[in-house]
Design a protein around this nucleic acid. Sequence first.
DNA 1: TTGTAGGCGTTATCAC
DNA 2: GTGATAACGCCTACAA
Lengths: 346, 346
Amino acid sequence: MKAAIPKPTVHDLAREAGVSLATVDRVLNERPGVREKTVARVKAAVERIGYVRDTHAANLARRRQYRFAIVLPEGPNQFVDTLRSAVQEASGAQFAERALVEMIPIPSHDPHAVARTLNGLNTARLDGVAIMAPETPQVRDAVDRLKDEGLAVVALVSDLPSSARDFFVGINSFAAGRTAAVLMGRFLRGLTGHILVVTNTMQARDSIERRFGFDAVMADEFPALEVLPSIESHDDPERMRRCVREALASYGDIRGIYSMGSGNTPLLEALRGAGDLEGRVVIAHEMTPVTRQALLDGEVDAVITQNVGHLVRSALRVLRARCDGVEIFEPQERIRIDIVIRENLT
Amino acid sequence: MKAAIPKPTVHDLAREAGVSLATVDRVLNERPGVREKTVARVKAAVERIGYVRDTHAANLARRRQYRFAIVLPEGPNQFVDTLRSAVQEASGAQFAERALVEMIPIPSHDPHAVARTLNGLNTARLDGVAIMAPETPQVRDAVDRLKDEGLAVVALVSDLPSSARDFFVGINSFAAGRTAAVLMGRFLRGLTGHILVVTNTMQARDSIERRFGFDAVMADEFPALEVLPSIESHDDPERMRRCVREALASYGDIRGIYSMGSGNTPLLEALRGAGDLEGRVVIAHEMTPVTRQALLDGEVDAVITQNVGHLVRSALRVLRARCDGVEIFEPQERIRIDIVIRENLT
DNA sequence: TTGTAGGCGTTATCAC
DNA sequence: GTGATAACGCCTACAA
């Protein structure tokens, strides 16, 4: 409908360099069987006319289909649920973009079962995998094997730094813990007392790192507040409620509660039961229906989180880039640590 | 290299429906000249085989080129500078995606000049425009004219609600102001005193709205803190420094400073000059080299901002979608209000 | 109202 | 080493 500024194509390139389409293609895709001199001529022509490859046309001609798997912990977990629906949402859009993405559940707490699932992946039918799993030697080996088989692999949410994974998509847990600590300390300006820390399990790398970051800042900047040992619920809501109640009873001066992992529902129940949720600062991780509602109700003061939509889209973009042997645009893939309070809840 | 699961194509569709490619195309693109019955048959076939159109192939065949303009205020402004470089960055990637984007500077403070520039746009050579400009009747009319000419138009950063713009890409200023207020109030827990508010000009819609949101929360939730009238620098650094110094001198109990707009450099200079930057809470808007450094140096406690990369990519995506007559995926285009403290500075 | 043929920018399979 | 030529999935004349 409107005059278009034509972009140089391979045809223009071929003409400019005085060679055929096939040769241009060989040079562009760094295939062998072209004389040094010819290569140079084509490359010069690329610079001269400012040729940029049309990736969509290329993918079309290649009949490229990306087959990705996203490996997520199974079982009831609010955060993973939000991740799952983000994957669902994304895979619709991805389908139109020549990518098939399937979700694969893993038993979260059994390293051997996780490794078994990963090793059981049909690598011949897969181009890339995004994995959210705790770091264990078994998982590390499984990831290395996937890499050996030529797959693109990204660690999702929780890093697998000792493995051969291509990239980590997620946030720095130390920094997340530090962020929580600053808010906790500042929201409790001038007060003395104790801080309760709760989590599902301190086995998880995330929890350890968050706690580490949290403690560092608290000790450094808010010495008037003493942080108590972590309470672990081990997936047992009743245990969480009981431990929290006991802690509140034992210490008369609990000023704040830091929830490092899942289990926010029983935590909030225990706090409500304790009556005086009012004066205390509660900071939790991950935006889920529960934390969102708690934020709205004023039961939680701040949530430290990461955008699951970005997480998933980013993982998929990175996998795609790795498959194409293309550089990724780092700043776009850096997941931010979001601070959410009631007022900036979208 | 690997077995690919073939996606149904128009050919499959044609065969399934027992019609030709052309007819399939007519139905898919809702072109006239097809019998009701045939339309139904094709649509049924779409459902049956799960056909999804390959937009990239379609764009290729159409030789579609998007020509977009991004209209930004000229003159020295740190935030706009970051926006400009985000545009620069994005346009590289967009070029590969069949979009040409040019930046058009406008004299920020003269509504007539803005309107003149907008009216001077060569609409025949443009498919869409993203506009960051203060809302005035002249601008509104210019936008409406652009829409009449068939362009896609999005308001960027600052909304133009009374105009016919297709979409607003940016954050809610009231909420941004409220967010700032909550942090200010909580960081000053238990204290009594005054809050200084500074901005470049209260003429700007953003400043008015931020102030409104800020005041509402302060009055409601933090009555012990009294918010002073806005100090306006009117683009004069010296005036900013002087006014701030005077205010600090007049009131002995200024606990916090809220910087609603540009002019952070002179503000910080004045505060440094005053000596005791320490005890005060400073909250500013927009992440720029200045606010970033101030955050690192502990001179600013929190920055309320929006991710310029997202802003630009989102604007471009929306323009594209409007041009294609395609629905946008709202959650992806919702720009979040980011709270940045030193600890979650990426 | 419907169908045929050719082209979009790229890659791939043959020959030469 | 290099060059025609035919796809890829879709759209668009032009014919029927």
